[in-house]
Write a protein that binds this DNA or RNA. Sequence first.
RNA 1: AGGCACGUAGCUCAGUGGCUAGAGCGCCGCCUUGACACGGCGGAGGUCGGCGGUUCAAUCCCGCCCGUGCCUACCA
Length: 884
Amino acid sequence: MSGSGSRVRSIDPATLPKHFDPAEAAARWGEAWEKAGVYAWDPQGTREETFVIDTPPPTASGSLHMGHIFSYVHTDIIARQRRMLGLNVFYPLGWDDNGLPTERRVQDYFHVRCDPTVPYDPDLQVEPATAKIRKGRARLVSRENFIALCDQVTVMDEEAFRDLWRRAALSVDWSLEYATIDDHCRRLAQLSFLDLFAKGHVYNTYAPTMWDVDFQTAVAQAEVEDRDLPGAYHRIEFGVEDSERSFTIATTRPELLAACVGVTAHPEDERYRDIFGKRAVTPLFRVPVPVFPSEMADPEKGTGILMVCTFGDATDVIWWREEGLELRQLVGKNGRLAEVTFGEEGFESLDPEAANRFYAEISGKTVKQAQKRMVELLGDPDGSATGNGAPLRADPEAIQHPVKFYERGERPLEYVPTRQWFVRLLDKKQELLAKGAEVKWHPPFMHARYADWTEKLSLDWCVSRQRYFGVAIPVWYPLDGDGNPDHERPILADAASLPIDPMSTPAPGYEESQRDKPGGFTGEADIFDTWFTSSLTPQIGSHWTLDPDRHARLFPTDMRPQAHEIIRTWAFYTIAKAMLHEDAIPWKHAVVSGWILDPDRKKMSKSLGNVETPLPWIEKYGADACRYWSGSARVGVDTAFDEKVLKIGKRLVTKIFNAGKFVLAQEAETHPVSAELDRAFVAELRALVERATAAFDEFQFAQALQETETFFWTRFTDTFLELAKGRARGDAADAAAQGSAVAALRLGLSVLLRLFAPTMPAITEEVWSWAFADETGEPSIHRAPWPSAADFDGIAGPDEAASLERAVAAWTAINKAKADAEVSSGREVESLTLAASADTLAGLAPVLSDVLAAARVHGHTLREDPTLEADAFRVEDAHFVERS
RNA sequence: AGGCACGUAGCUCAGUGGCUAGAGCGCCGCCUUGACACGGCGGAGGUCGGCGGUUCAAUCCCGCCCGUGCCUACCA
């Protein structure tokens, strides 16, 4: 165990810059990492040695904020730690660019609207819209041109995101980049549809569906949100056919009176029992409608009796279906009241002439306009069905009530009967719940969000959208002799032909010339819900059905990072897809990040105007400091944005830089760790590694960081380093003692750098490169082995576990004496007396010289004082050297 | 209205059935020290949201309440 004359010294501090420049280092290392392929996934790795991340594909809508940094850095920290564990990390990044967010951004950016009836213009050039252009009417462009503009904008937006990810030092493997609109993803999504069709999990049907009148598309349950809006109960008197009887219903949607197809009340409601089975007569339109009892009617609400319309709400749809009521659809796809004629089939009236006169007043109006006019009309006694005067029996009673909106929409959803494709899920709730329970959620309570949503699911998944920028549904329909499509017998695309667009490719067995001709075919114009594609991200990465070998290596994935507000969409649909396709779970762990809140604890979002854009912060504090901020927030916990944390991160980076500089500048003979103080430090270090590793195993990166950071400051730089400093510099004559100190300091630095590396990749790589890269043969710390027992091989434990603690206590006591005397803690001490219990003094002996050196004490006396508690020290009779 | 989470120092957050409840920032005092003034040392500051209960012992477990946030439900 001799140094045999070999010496260590790695750097001359004079050659290093005084301060660390994070921006310069980040740029330099970013380039080096990419060049060296540090983050490359090895396609030959087995499933066991591979760690697969199902990265969320961001919507590159052009708005970047700290929330993006926050959650993606969480994932990156895990990725880097798993890579250091020796795992073959599969860490792709995709872009979820299809769907409405992109369409909306394109509409705004160019001030255009898609109109499928406009012919394609191959030479179309559109400049970004100016404020002046936006004042005019939007330019109408063809479907093909619109899609091309979407492609153009997504490429541009993705560049901004890609730059941010690089600046944040995300260790993604860019060779695995994909976009949900690219050929591979379109192919996968269409293959998914074919598989679901073959297994009987999809169907198309004509039914009332939630419809956004602005975007003019169907939407799924998961995309619907309630908003509290002011409304009003309108009390309207109805008559009863062949009777003097009348009753008053209460409704918030008087504009749908002409769509009334029934009246209902609770079966036990004494007030209305006599008219069940009779026909009520609506005012104004004089339409007879059945009165029926229903358990769903609440006697406490309104007047206890209500009109059923096609369609005012979800309950109307149920009544309509269960009671087999007429369909009188008034609200059209554009949100305006359709033109109808009373007296014709489906719109029977006891007085068609009056009905049509009244209806003419609201026909073609928007729902809102129609309501206003309707209230006026209801004030007209001529409209009464009973002869009791104006049908509106009271002033409207203002209420506040929840109204369903498409989450991105501006006007309430309407139920409009349309033909849509659905994935059948309602009959599989139990299986979906079982699959959700198989996934390990972090934090565990996030599982409740999934289970809650799944249990309360009330509609199958509507996957068709009447939009343009997205993945086409790969079907056609044969046309009969009259040109009517047969939706019951869709023609499916051949799997080998995917991806295809049925609007530009003819159906198999047909010629393009037969498109939309009687006896020919028609293409499905709808596209898929964007979640239909993004729910396949695990399979997109694994090349499901296309490359079985790769699929076996990558599916199911290990980790799905995501935000909690999209558990009901992305997480739910991904679980559903994996189950329907392969009866599998898509990932073993779902790691759910919290939100970034502004200092007022409001969610940071574009619509609230409280977003912090990340680039200025990266420039001010450096990527490592921003990552430190992200990495200090625990999984699943909402976190307020706080600049103070960035400052702390930057301070830590500086401290690592300086500590590294000091440790690696020490020159000594090579010796093993042998001194008591050093062994005590190494024992603590070993325990730290165990705690940090255990935390990472459970995806608790914040805990690992906090443990490491606390240890770094309080056990390493502020204490051990200070206590061992003198010996390391060679103040003691003993070369072995000096070598031990240097070896322990270097081991401490090496281990701490590696523990910090996942969170702060640039500074740790920088310091690593000064010495350890060559020594270990690991050119990048990000491929270096994660600290483990192997790092401490051959180092004996301390004689007493508390040696370091005791040394610190004695040193602190001397420092306090200096503080009390208002002298610098660096002041030399001529002499002092150190009092402590006999046992404590005995325990201090092996580390005493380090304490005295650190405190710069020249002469000392030890005094036994049995009144002092264990490991308590008192400094007496201190005489300080006068400053020269 | 149900469910979930949260409520700890001025601020941002850790933490645990048991010594005297912690960190950083901020504040006060001292120290230009030899890796680091982008630093060091010392200090003040808390009825751990409230009320009950279980326990030898509760900030932690249980119940109720108050407050905050989120998810879900609620269009007559």
